[in-house]
Amino acid sequence: MRYRSIDLNLLVVLDALLDDPSVTRAADRLNVGQPAISAMLARLREHFGDPLLVQEGRKLVLSPVALELKPAVQAWLERARVLTSAKPGFDPSRAERRFAIACSEIVAGFLLPLVSARLTREAPGISITVRTFSAFRAARTPAVEALERQGLDFVVLPGSFTSADHPRRPLLSAPYRCLVWRGNRAVSGARSRHGALDEAAFYASPHIVPTLLDGSVATIESDDALLHRAQRERVVRTEHLLAIPAAIAGTPLIATLPSFVAERFAARESELRVVDCPIALPPLTEVMQWQQTRENDPAYAWFRDLLIDCASEITPDIAL
């Protein structure tokens, strides 16, 4: 089939070559002879007026034009896939799909167990692959890197890392509270039911903060508010969120965490308690994004609603 002077079948070949710039591997992937792929590549080069694949040392790499074409070709083919697979209605109990999602350890630890339980009950044929948000944080636009270049279905990330090119919806929001040892003398009324932590004691105390793989603070978009005037040399940083409760017990360490995280940890560890944070911090806000090309996919719509329902169980008193 041709559309505006190009054989649409060539776009399938172009997509394979853009994904892996190798004529041999594209032939294997598409179960087509290598000479046929070479011939189609020649036609694509003629149509776009560009070599598309260029020799760099002993390998082929994408030309600047090819890099620019890649997201558009992927989006076109995804629209074609949705169109050709469209069926009236969507039955999650019979569906077989896999969704790939990138999120922080906090989202993975608190949201995904709820999602997994719902899938087991309602959609046993639907499975999920979870990637860490840290893997994409260094990109100029993490959401674009995850959704377009890596082909993930969903990302859940702080609002400052989202992309204007893809649909978005706030998923989680929670204030910050402080997790402390019950014997911490910096907390007034430490042994009473309602302890309090003032600003001076907060800044004078050592802190423990969860970090991402690049060492940046994982739960507060700017750690300046938390560590300003604090004794920086007395700050413990860890990539292991679950290690924080054990690290606090019996010490003056303070962890400033989203309220649902701090309260869950305190409920599990009788030696710990949660007190209000004495400084003003913006709440944790996690935003869900998904691929623009799949906006009307009924399976996507169902899975989005499932994530929203599960998130409401974590922060039921916070309307988004």
Rank of each mutant, 00 (worst) to 15 (best):
R168D: 09
P124C: 04
V144W: 11
L53M: 01
A138F: 08
L152H: 02
I126V: 05
A266K: 06
I220R: 15
L172C: 00
L62I: 01
A72E: 07
P88N: 07
R168N: 12
L114S: 04
A255T: 05
T293I: 08
A174C: 08
R234F: 09
V23M: 08
P158G: 01
V13G: 03
D276E: 14
R168Q: 13
R25V: 12
A190M: 09
I248Y: 04
G250I: 03
R4P: 03
F133A: 15
G33L: 06
R131H: 15
E286V: 05
S5D: 15
I254M: 05
D50L: 02
Q291R: 15
E46S: 08
F154K: 02
A80W: 12
G151T: 08
I128C: 11
A95L: 01
R45E: 13
E233V: 08
L114H: 06
S104T: 09
E46Y: 05
F48K: 03
G49N: 03
S163A: 02
D15P: 05
A267R: 14
L306A: 04
H240S: 13
A196W: 05
P92G: 06
I244M: 00
L67T: 10
P158V: 00
I314M: 04
I244P: 01
L147T: 05
S85L: 13
L44H: 00
I6K: 07
G109T: 01
R45L: 08
L52P: 00
G57A: 04
A66N: 00
D297S: 03
L11M: 08
R98W: 10
Q231G: 07
S222P: 08
G195T: 05
A66K: 02
V12M: 12
L253K: 10
F133W: 12
L172A: 03
A139S: 14
A138V: 12
L272P: 01
V54N: 05
T293E: 15
R4S: 12
I254D: 02
A117I: 07
S134F: 07
S173T: 14
P210I: 02
F154D: 01
S93K: 13
